[in-house]
Design a protein around this nucleic acid. Structure first.
Lengths: 370, 370
DNA sequence: CCCGCATCTGACAACGTTGTCCAGGCTCTA
DNA sequence: TAGAGCCTGGACAACGTTGTCAGATGCGGG
């Protein structure tokens, strides 16, 4: 957790105390900051104003039966007059469910995760739950920190896009009843529901597509193989090459490369060595974008297939051929499975794999440069 | 609120009761679902196991002083053995702050809001707070529903990208101490902090840029004028035209158009009427994308400047000239202002306007087709 | 007129945590 | 060795809500 740069420190609020007397210092400012929830009215206040009992207010607020219209009206008036709003924190404490679920992903700013998150939110909304988002920034420690913070809030369920590869820390939580679904990458070292895209098959098909168009020297640029999707896509690449009987040279593969600078260098190296590649398979959307730039700058056409669709890919010259995965479907599927767990329809953990789709737009159909 | 399609109904959980006896039916399944938090251990359990008092456990958990190392060790062992995790719901109830803030935006799947949300999250994280996201889908009722749900959770603060134009419903909340900052569009009918991009100036500059390159018949396609940014951008368009002494024809303006079908039609109409426009100013990222498509299909070059940057805009032929706003800076600025409110450094509500930046890439510098 | 019943209402405990405050044991000093 | 003072630990109330249950009220019938 980063250091707070200010005095807002919600989880460690100390009330100033006079050293000698032990009395609280209730100066005006201190009093204000001490007012929990800024002095919001409670059901007790509403009850007092309406001249009824506490429980009657509760009944009105929750639409429970057994309140005469006249009483209900009086209570409602008091509620409006005071601007009362039920405190769901207390409600949660009493009821045991928070009606909220957590989503831990890599980076909300990544165009792949926006739609995924939105899809999860929609499903949550249909079940009356709110969504708490957290970005792990691909850091396993931060992932764990986030997940545990969400568990401390007692979210009813968790959708996790893993950054780390060991999720045993979640075992007590799952045992305690926190519904959990992993998305995009499988959980590490525990048995849990997983919703994935078919990275292996998608990559294999994409590379096979290049091979079918006459390429033999095909480069692969992808993320660190410790990331499951990256490893699977690499495996797909190798499988396609092997199926075609093409031995892969080390110089054709660049792994663990993700920031634009290094992707750029990797692409340039592949394209300019003694036996340059004639086509590149890009392992994810960010890599694809950078490779498109490099190719555009070089002038000479190079075939390209990318994993993940990217916006405007169809408008480039040539259009970018991609292996598309449906981020929204991933999120929706995962969330639906989560709520099925919460409904108690517990089946054994399952691995759901969604198909990918090859979208041909031109760049993947270029013949090898001679 | 949509209907829940399942039995997960966290906020209205009824326990099955036998009609005749009034006794609870405690069949195995019912018992399980009745277990709050799935039977998680509490501090009481930890205290019993460690053979210490409840408060001592609390002290250990919160790192408060006044516990001997030996006692601390015993407590820690009990915590680990039971898999105890502090229940922040109860903590929140006691402490009065939730260490969470709410962000209501239009659509998390929109590439403009992803970075904004992420920026808010980072600031929140630096202050030890979690972020609850909600998408209003540009529906004022849904916005209000979301905001009030967040208030019921007692979020410490709210960052709102307004869908509606009347936020008086927030007055009691703000009075009760919920820090609130509006982003991207101003609040309606209440006085509150606002962080905006300079939509007017940006649009004016963008249109002036087209005029400077010789255009006089310039089209404008934008969102409904009830959306503040859309209205401001239209105003900027009109101002630039007026400054140049160019009377605007109605046929050049298309307002309230946002879905691709209708944007497409609007663009085609403008480009093919009796006095077709030679340039188009697109009011937001989605409009820009569609207009780029239409122009590309027509073959004949048409000048274009779009509001909002779009990915890969530099790689198109020609590159798309845009008026860029910094979504992350909007989010960061708003969140920082929010926490400044929470720190108690309350100043009077302020309107902060962030500058936009014209990025020339080619499409805005095309001369008018003769 | 009184009883039984149904309906409405409110007192009370509980949820899990933290703030307050006091008790008991220890150390240190005179 | 007694007293003062400190350190540690725990009992208790409170946060705002909901579930339980019993009491109050009103109504109709015997």
């Amino acid at each position: 957790m980063l250091d707070a740069t200010s005095s807002y420190n919600p989880m460690d609020r100390r009330i100033p105390v006079d050293d000698r007397t032990g009395q609280h210092i209730v100066a005006e400012t201190a009093r204000r900051s001490e007012n929990r929830y800024g002095n919001r009215p409670t059901m007790k206040d509403v009850a007092a104003r309406a001249g009824v009992g506490l429980k009657t207010v509760s009944r009105v607020v929750n639409g429970e039966p057994g309140v005469t219209p006249d009483t209900e009206r009086r209570v409602q008036e008091a509620i409006d007059a005071l601007g009362f709003r039920r405190n769901d924190s207390a409600r949660v404490l009493r009821k045991g469910r928070t009606a909220s679920i957590g989503l831990v992903l890599e980076d909300l700013a990544d165009p792949f995760y926006g739609p995924l998150s939105r899809a999860v939110e929609e499903v949550a909304r249909a079940h009356g739950a709110l969504l708490i988002n957290g970005s792990s920034a691909e850091d396993p420690d931060r992932e764990q920190e986030l997940v545990l913070a969400l568990c401390a809030r007692r979210v009813d369920g968790l959708v996790v896009i893993p950054a780390g590869d060991d999720h045993r820390y979640l075992e007590p939580e799952i045992k305690a009843g926190v519904a959990t679904v992993f998305v995009d990458r499988p959980a590490g070292k525990i048995d849990a529901d997983v919703v994935l895209s078919d990275s292996f098959g998608g990559a294999r098909d994409g590379v096979a597509h290049l091979i079918a168009h006459g390429h033999r020297r095909i480069g692969f640029i992808g993320d660190m193989p410790r990331i499951h999707t990256a490893a699977e896509r690499l495996r797909g690449y190798r499988a396609a090459m092997e199926d075609a009987g093409i031995p892969v040279e080390d110089a054709w593969m660049s792994l663990g490369v993700t920031d634009p600078q290094r992707v750029r260098k990797a692409a340039e190296d592949m394209l300019s060595g003694p036996s340059p590649v004639t086509a590149i398979f890009a392992g994810n959307n960010r890599v694809t974008v950078t490779v498109v730039r490099v190719i555009a700058e070089r002038g000479r056409p190079v075939a390209l297939v990318g994993f993940d669709d990217i916006e405007l890919a169809d408008l480039l010259q040539p259009g970018v051929t991609v292996v598309a995965q449906d981020a929204a479907a991933l999120g929706r599927t995962a969330a639906e499975r989560l709520f099925r767990q919460l409904d108690g329809n517990l089946v054994t953990p399952e691995r759901i794999e969604l198909p990918t789709r090859l979208i041909t737009r031109g760049s993947g159909e270029l013949p090898p440069a001679r």
